[in-house]
Amino acid sequence: MRGQVVAVSLIALALVLLPALAPRDNVLNWVFLALLYGALAQSWNLLGGFGGQVNLGHAAFFGLGSLVTRTLWLNQVPLPLALVAGTAAATAMGVIIGAPSLRLRGPYFAIGTLAVAEILRITTANALPEVSFLPTTYLAGYRLLPRYYLALGLVSAVTFVAWWLTRSRFGYGLAAVREDADVAEAIGVHAFSHKLLAFVLSSLFAGMAGGLFAYYHVSYYLQFPFNPIWTFDALLITFLGGAGTVWGPLVGAGFFLLLRETLALRLVELHLLIFGIVFVLVVLVFPGGFVAAWRALATRSERSLQ
């Protein structure tokens, strides 16, 4: 336990000091992406890992957060306000979509959320088909540093919420709902309100990650953050690292980006095939992801030491 606290503090400190230690932009850029993907995966994990509800429409909230933030920011609204508005829009959408869809169970919920996200993506593609460029005045002042620290703050906030879920009354209630919603009800847990709050928290942080994406990218199609690839990357990262664990999505994000960088350079599109194989292997061999595999290794080595 103490070892874990020390390790986490050291990594956090290293991340805070990184811009001073490694001033090269490509390193910082890579870590930024790991933090962004980590935050998005962690936001998926709040509902999918801790709540057991497989949301296949997560990109909708990432997309909405980015769309609102980008549009306001490029229209002279100060960035903090634009980010808050983007996050608020995604959160509100979480309530609107969560309330009806969470009444569906299992596969129906997954398919329903996927459909909603696709509708939003296609609507955005039709209504706003242009590429969104940062104007030259914005480009002149572009620095990676504030983006990096914003990503670090976001990942810390969403991971704090995940940690809170492991040791709070609400977290225990949510775990009960994940295990068996009928039993949870029978011991006093209102299943629907727990799922809804987890959904809303998940949308909130996905929206914030979307806002960060809008602040980071110089040019992209406005529909791109609505692409289902964001949902599936978040899901893949979470399952690789360990769904329903605090550190799984962060470990998974680091691994995912390392693998993608090295593989995509050499194999181009073929790297997707490798991802598929790795994913299947992880799910089959250690279904709890890297974090569970590590824990199993740690207890085994402890036993062999005794």
Binding site: R169, Y172, G173, A175, A176, E179, D180, D182, V183, A184, A186, I187, G188, V189
Partner: peptide, 27 residues
Amino acid sequence: ARTFQLVRPLPNLTALDNVLVARLYGR
């Protein structure tokens, strides 16, 4: 409060946590 005909523990929670959730949410 009730029990089920075919026992339904919350399978991946510990025995303690099974009881704890009920203690946190019950009467």
